[in-house]
Amino acid sequence: MNGITPKNRLLDVLNKKATDRAPVICMGGMMNASIVEIMNSTGFTLPAAHDNPDLMASLAGAIQEQTGFENLGVPFCMTVEAELLGSRIDKGTLACEPKIKQEAFGSVGDVIFRDIDEMLESGRIQTVTSATATLSQTHKQLPVVVSMTGPISTAASIINPMAFYKELRKNPANAHRVLEYVTELLIGFAARSVRAGASVIAIGDPSATGEILGPVMFQEYAVRYLNILTEAVHGFGVPVILHICGDINKVRSLIPGLKANAISTDAMVNLQKLKEDFPEITTMGNLSTYSLEWGSPDKISVQTQKLVDDGIDIISPACGLSTSTTLANIRAMTRTVQGE
């Protein structure tokens, strides 16, 4: 290593400073790398690690060490916020991530607005911040990325999503009230994460894609609340990575309006072209998780090298990794970026 720590390298890229090479990271949350192979070999397992801060930190540490990803990423799901807001969660199994069992509310009009500060002191936000505090102490050279669920996805996890999508159009006043409420909670979560030592906040908002919402509602709801959250995090002195799921074509022109420091996309998006069209965007991605699961190390190496050669700023998986992905395949990815 030529003096630069992985933490500084990632922060430099996110702050648009020149670096020796692109970092290779895996942001956690919806896109975590807690594969079965690592869990079985270390004994740091899910679903237990979702609730236990020591186990969460240990698993995040083991993932980093074994995969070679240049960050620590917590948590390992996208249900922390929804659980706090009242939805019933199925914590999943070793190989299957947690999911919403039952949304707390049937419609935007039913949402009960609880005291945010009180909520922030409870639930698994404590688990995440405590794990973050540990990791930031034990791994000072590595960035701790805390992944959060974006405003729309959180709202669609506490309100029946079918009703929620309709109400974005039918009941915009209440929809906005709910999104303001949810965004405030997320800002509080981010503040606590930063205080605990998070170097970067990552946001995944899979329910807020241009494919689902179309450009008008993407601007009115997604861009608006993502930017409120992002600017609040900037106020805490920390950069933001935003992952947008699916094909961004329908909202392509709105992407430069997002204030996140880096935009991560799914595998079908041509990041080189995105960079060409909007040179101001710091791009992140987008190695196919399908390749990561089914491909050979050689093929993965070739695909990763292409991303590096294309000048993608941060190399990472394009979507959530399958828990049956092999370590050998992930290592092929990280080692290619690291020039090994």
Partner: peptide
Amino acid sequence: DEEYFIPEILLCSD
């Protein structure tokens, strides 16, 4: 044709 998106289709379906 990308004039309607998911919310619109859901409302039409209702």
